[in-house]
Design a protein around this nucleic acid. Structure first.
Lengths: 342, 342
DNA sequence: TCAAAAATCTGTAACGATACAGTTCGCTTG
DNA sequence: CAAGCGAACTGTATCGTTACAGATTTTTGA
């Protein structure tokens, strides 16, 4: 055979110092770059023994595909983007979500990229960015709304994503959600059992979907257990803890003071307790309180509070599995999950 | 001029539907791809008017360089990697750090990638990964040790990074740290002023650098203010809250019970308080406590605790600025910062 | 006036991977 | 026995960008 015709692809012997590429393996095995590429992909037109050899050498030299090369050629980024509101940063729910996602991604080729959006800025912007620049293969969003334009946009473009929280648009998409309805209903039940009659709810802001769920559970509890709901002005979980505290102090001083509290967040509960105690009232004595909490530190300092645990790390895991499933082409119906308090 | 010689580069008119590339702009301006590339980089060999035109068109069509293209060609990833221990996840210090970093990166081309390492696994592995695969342009690490092999490795390879916490190897590198020595010294001073005589310290695990700092400040305080240090067994901040609580309960029941506490973390403080109260003792009455805290929720539930605030979000910002500075070639000396309690 | 220098602009190759369209060769089959 | 087939392998072009080495035109200088 004419030497000149032999393998132009892998001609220049690749430095063994550098990071190995397909070329390196091609050179070492005497095969063409294409063959190596296809062998590592287990393509049907490559001989079994060749595949074995290639795999062996690849493993030996510690070959890892160059992400930029793959991305440029195929468009696949191997990136999952977690879209975060920088102000969501009340009491760090972000950490456990990130950890949960990371746990799942660790055994995949995916990297986790944080895509933040600024204070009070358009939540659609980061999603648009990812879609327009192809910055990721999939997206995870939170603070989901009933008619969520981000969901609409990604569905329209058929882009894989998962939401923390549900929507209400008749669109089927992957999500993970906490059963806030069940939580609130159960919370009211507990308070009613303790003989409480006038219950207040510290709820999520009205534009978020889980406001509805929590409200629904709360209202049904109010009705089913024959107690009364006390309104809590315009204050919700998006207010600062200082504002919540002040508002609750005012409420507790008024004639309208409740004797039972349902709190949708652990951080909010702290503000409520501070407000409560500022007016000289005591838990279990004057009021009872049920709080959703991310961890159990609250019960260490105020064991009087009835806590219901939301496992946010688990949510992170579920969300990661859902996006990856969607990327793999699984139907959205199978990628929806709901978790209850533990 | 012969039509055939004209611009082979931008020959195929790029679809105006797709994401614009240099080719798109080249076609629209009638220039070569190279010229457009150099114009956007403000290279000296491109005419002023040409640059203006190119910039205008680029802005008009919303050109954004393809990251994979740049990365493949130049090796620049435009990625900062935050290396996280998944078990660091006690009380979510991660959130504010991530937010702080994101705030700074938002106005740069950098993306933030989370690179986790598993439970009790080798902390060097993720750093090695980034270095070997060129996954990022810079790295941020925490849980820094006096002789930190990660720092050693990155210095040796001359790879840009910043550490949360200092080292003690005679190597000069970018860092941000909290003044734990000052904190502990001041804490002891406060307790001594309150008449406390027997002080215990809930400290970081011995292998982390800030253990030394905190210990130094504590020991000097003990000496300077003429009080006594109470040992706290083998329990440190890396123990679970349950363990800390149990250990402290034991300590408080012993003859060796302290009357003053310095706590190196807000989460740890909660465990200590729980342990304290489990044996029927009360803050300010039987003991006083000074705690470093990431936010002020602790003082809402236990105003008796003297808190000193560590601004972790600020740390995130400083760390991000430091890595970027290092990437830009600034000397490490100028990228070191220390912050005090606020 | 004419060569040299300066100012602008451009084509080619390469980064690493893969889609696609072959090529080679041994074997079957009519 | 030649055409045809399938198995196994490979070269070329391409993704978007930039380094580099020209190319072309204009300006300068003697």
């Amino acid at each position: 055979m004419d030497e000149k015709t032999k393998s132009k692809q892998a001609s220049a012997s690749p430095s063994l110092q550098e990071r190995p590429t397909l070329k390196t393996i091609a050179f070492m095995t005497g095969l063409g770059i294409t063959t190596v590429s296809r062998a590592l992909k287990d393509a049907p037109d490559i001989g079994a023994e060749t595949k074995e050899r290639v795999r062996l050498v690849a493993k030996q030299v510690g070959y890892q595909p160059n992400r930029a090369g793959v991305r440029l050629r195929t468009g696949k980024t191997n990136v999952i983007s977690l879209v975060l509101s920088l102000e969501e940063e009340v009491m760090g729910l972000t950490s456990p979500i990130v950890v949960g996602i990371s746990e799942v991604l660790a055994s995949t080729p995916y990297h986790l990229v944080i895509t933040p959006y600024g204070f009070s800025k358009d939540a659609l912007a980061p999603v648009r960015y990812v879609l327009d620049t192809g910055a990721a293969d999939g997206v995870i969003i939170s603070r989901t709304e009933p008619k969520d334009p981000r969901v609409e946009l990604m569905m329209e473009r058929n882009f894989p994503f998962a939401t923390h929280g549900r929507t209400d648009m008749g669109l089927i998409h992957p999500y993970h959600d906490f059963d806030n309805e069940g939580f609130a209903y159960e919370a009211v039940r507990r308070l009613a059992e303790l003989g409480r009659k006038r219950i207040v709810l510290l709820q999520p802001p009205p534009h978020l979907t889980f406001h509805r769920h929590m409200r629904k559970g709360f209202d049904e509890g109010i009705r089913d257990f024959g107690v009364e709901a006390v309104a809590f002005g315009a204050v919700d979980l998006d207010n600062s803890l200082t504002e919540i505290r002040a508002a609750f102090e005012t409420l507790m001083r008024s004639d309208d003071a409740p004797d039972g509290i349902v709190s949708g967040s652990g951080a909010g509960s702290i503000a409520l307790i501070a407000g409560l105690e500022a007016v000289g009232k005591k838990l279990t004595q004057h009021v009872d309180m049920v709080s959703k909490v991310p961890s159990d530190f609250l019960s260490w300092l105020r064991p009087e509070v009835i806590t219901m645990n939301e496992d946010i790390r688990h949510a992170g895991r579920e969300l990661a599995k859902a996006v990856i499933g969607r990327i793999a082409g699984l139907p959205a119906e199978e990628l929806q999950s709901l978790s209850r308090a533990i």
